[in-house]
Design a protein around this nucleic acid. Structure first.
Lengths: 218, 218
DNA sequence: GAGCAGATGATCGAGTTCCGATCGGTGACC
DNA sequence: GGTCACCGATCGGAACTCGATCATCTGCTC
């Protein structure tokens, strides 16, 4: 069992906040159960109707336990999103190593497929909207980690391919992330199975976008 | 004074809901004042920190008055969004009739400019995200009017130009709406003035998208 | 067409309900 | 016996309700 050290750790001053940090074994399972419950609730009644009591109920825990691991409702949702993103990252890696696309542009296509797959299988995924970071609650101090997913995505690609030494690449990938996020979300907005027209168009738009800019890699 | 009978009227069963429908003159002003207040609050402290009490305060009305016109907090925000969309529609019409672009594809460019302008001038605009309809609270009965803005946009264009008789046009416009919404929102996500790179890229992506599909109109 | 009176709409704000979050206490693990 | 996980009654504050009160409209009378 890998110990789950959060990078954040303690700030400068005393941080008496209970923070998420499992010490004993069972805690990890608890956290997962809580997030599963939250995902289910989010799928059923939607994002902003979710109450912490519902999450506790569904996870067969008490209110207190919820707040034992998450300082508040918003952080709980963020944790759900973070877990989903991590799972998505794994899904990309699996798919790319499985399909071994010729070029990194094609690998982006695989990532889109993986994204669509997540919408179909991962509870709560369709509500999360994570291309952009936290919208709304303007974060205290810490930089609002905008576009961080594009960076991470670049890392994944860089592990398998030789990326063009283009300083604009990060920007282009961020555009791609935004485009895909918008169109795939639209595809699943009403159609629970995912509207194929929008899915196909997302693939096409991205392919056109990248082929125009990186003809060598297409 | 035109009596303002709601189209909805009575459903099968008794509908005791108070619903928004101004009868007397002052009501309209009240509603506007409430929405102005909501927009200001949203700009200042953000979307989900908004409380109905703040809105009432700022509009110099009582809590009761807020709930006289809006069944709940979420509907209040939706109304704010609806008004912003209407204003945006007007802004498009004004700009297009003012600039009189040669082709409808160029008119789409003007619409993007108008969109950016709204982000800079219309209070509360940047939080609203309206390309997609209501996300989250799954609406009872009524169809979730997805993509309705693209339809409306097509109407605006059709009033000034002869649009291609392409049954896929609506779909393409919807894609454009999604793309623009995503990229322009990203442009304003952290940069209050709007990140020019994303704005320019939005224009480029849309132009490329439409020129590929409608070379005659470009 | 001025004045009045009843009806109906608009406003108010104290009271209620609901929900996010706390805290002191109890039991499980080391 | 000391730490950690868990519970759930309780608190505080925000969403929302409701009966009373004020403003405006309608239409009748003279």
């Amino acid at each position: 069992m890998p110990k789950n050290k959060t990078a954040a750790a303690e700030q400068t001053s005393a941080a008496p906040l209970v923070r998420t940090e499992p010490i004993q074994e069972r805690s990890a399972a608890r956290i997962d159960a809580l997030l599963d419950a939250a995902a289910a609730v989010v799928d059923e009644i939607g994002f902003d109707r979710l109450t912490t009591a519902m999450v506790a109920d569904r996870a067969e825990a008490s209110i207190g336990t919820v707040y034992r691991y998450f300082p508040d409702r918003i952080v709980l949702l963020q944790a759900l999103r973070d877990r989903a993103i991590e799972r998505y990252r794994q899904a990309i890696v699996e798919r790319v190593t499985g399909e071994t696309p010729e070029t990194w542009v094609e690998a982006v296509g695989s990532a889109i497929d993986a994204f669509v797959g997540m919408f179909r299988t991962e509870p709560g995924f369709r509500i999360i909207r994570f291309a952009d970071a936290e919208r709304g609650p303007v974060n205290r101090d810490e930089p609002p980690r905008v576009g961080f997913f594009a960076l991470r995505f670049a890392d994944i690609l860089a592990a398998e391919y030789t990326l063009p030494d283009d300083e604009a690449l990060t920007f282009h990938l961020e555009i791609v992330v935004e485009l895909v996020d918008a169109l795939i979300n639209r595809a699943f907005l009403i159609d629970m199975a995912g509207d194929e027209r929008f899915i196909a168009e997302a693939r096409t738009v991205v392919r056109e976008y990248l082929e125009t800019r990186y003809p060598a890699a297409a």
